[in-house]
């Protein structure tokens, strides 16, 4: 509340402009560079409205005409996960990054950078297909027999539902991955003459073998706790102990600190680790 009050006082100067520094990059394998913009302050701004203003003006603080900054967004209410970027050094969604609060913490300027662990496509747009490859790898779905009418799903206690809901709120934004020291950026470039399909297949293969990260480990717990999902728990545990699996986790615990949805990722990693150990032992004896 204290913060809010201070921001209100600050807003008594409506003509004030503030500066925004953006790390830009024209395309993959291109050098990155900073550009500064001056934005007229208005009430209730967030980083989305800042980027909209940059696009509409397309002019730097020095009056240089530039192409609008490219960035991803869709829902603007922190449910779609699209607008994730690094704002004042912290990975988060641009929509809930409110300008007054940011200026309160750092009045001189707001700094926008693309996520650091994903290849830049252009400016603040990154390629996060790796997130979805790891969801393929851990088979994050309920393998129902068919979509025919077979009646309701199994009954569940409120506690089980509440826990599952916590995990299933994951918006696949990639914050937990960007903050993870064990999650190493993979960047492959298109070969001359390579088709989109061939490039994507090559990238997918590399992503498939690399560390899956906290979000995917939590999804294993989600689906293995589901009564139908638990029937195929071993498949997910196999993926969890394969190359790029849970053993790569270094327990830095950064993931849980940056998750915008408050998902208990370290709890999921702990549970995943125990399940993985049991699974390995069981496999030894089943041989």
């Amino acid at each position: 509340m204290e913060k809010r009050k201070a921001a209100d006082n600050w807003s008594a100067e409506p003509t004030r402009a503030f500066r925004v520094r953006v790390l830009r990059q024209d395309g993959p394998a291109q050098p990155s560079y900073w550009q500064r913009f001056s934005i007229a302050w208005e009430p209730d701004m967030n980083c989305i409205s800042v980027l909209q203003k940059i696009a509409a003006k397309a002019e730097t603080i020095d009056g240089q005409r530039v192409a609008p900054v490219a960035w991803d967004c869709n829902c603007l209410e922190e449910v779609c996960g699209a607008c994730t970027m690094v704002i004042n050094g912290r990975v988060r969604q641009a929509c809930t990054a409110l300008v007054d609060q940011l200026l309160q913490d750092r009045p001189e300027e707001i700094e926008l950078q693309p996520m650091k662990k994903f290849p830049v496509i252009r400016d603040l747009v990154v390629d996060r297909s790796r997130i979805f490859v790891s969801l393929q790898k851990v088979r994050a779905w309920i393998p129902v027999d068919s979509y025919l009418d077979m009646g309701a799903g199994p009954r569940q206690s409120q506690d089980v539902q509440q826990l599952a809901y916590l995990y299933s709120k994951c918006i696949s934004c990639g914050c937990c991955l960007d903050a993870c020291p064990q999650f190493i950026k993979i960047e492959l470039y298109r070969e001359p003459g390579e088709s989109t399909e061939a490039y994507e297949a090559r990238l997918r293969e590399a992503n498939y073998r690399a560390f899956m990260g906290a979000h995917a480990i939590a999804q294993v717990d989600l689906f293995n706790s589901n009564p139908i999902g638990s029937m195929t728990a071993n498949e997910r545990l196999d993926a969890l102990i394969a190359e790029g699996g849970i053993q790569v986790c270094g327990q830095a615990q950064n993931c849980v600190k940056v998750c915008p949805k408050g998902i208990p990722l370290t709890t999921a990693i702990g549970r995943g680790g125990r399940a993985a150990t049991k699974h390995i032992v069981k496999k030894l004896f089943d041989r």
Binding site: W141, I142, V144, Y147, D149, M150, G151, A152, G153, R155, Q156, S157, Q158, V160, Q161, A164, Y165, S168, F223, N226, I228, G229
Partner: peptide
């Protein structure tokens, strides 16, 4: 009703009553 049953089977985390029904 059948559509919601299907979504239930697909793992949608519908809120539950104390007895475990949707």
């Amino acid at each position: 009703p059948r559509i919601i049953d299907l979504m239930d089977r697909l793992g949608v985390t519908f809120n539950r009553t104390p007895e475990g029904f949707r």
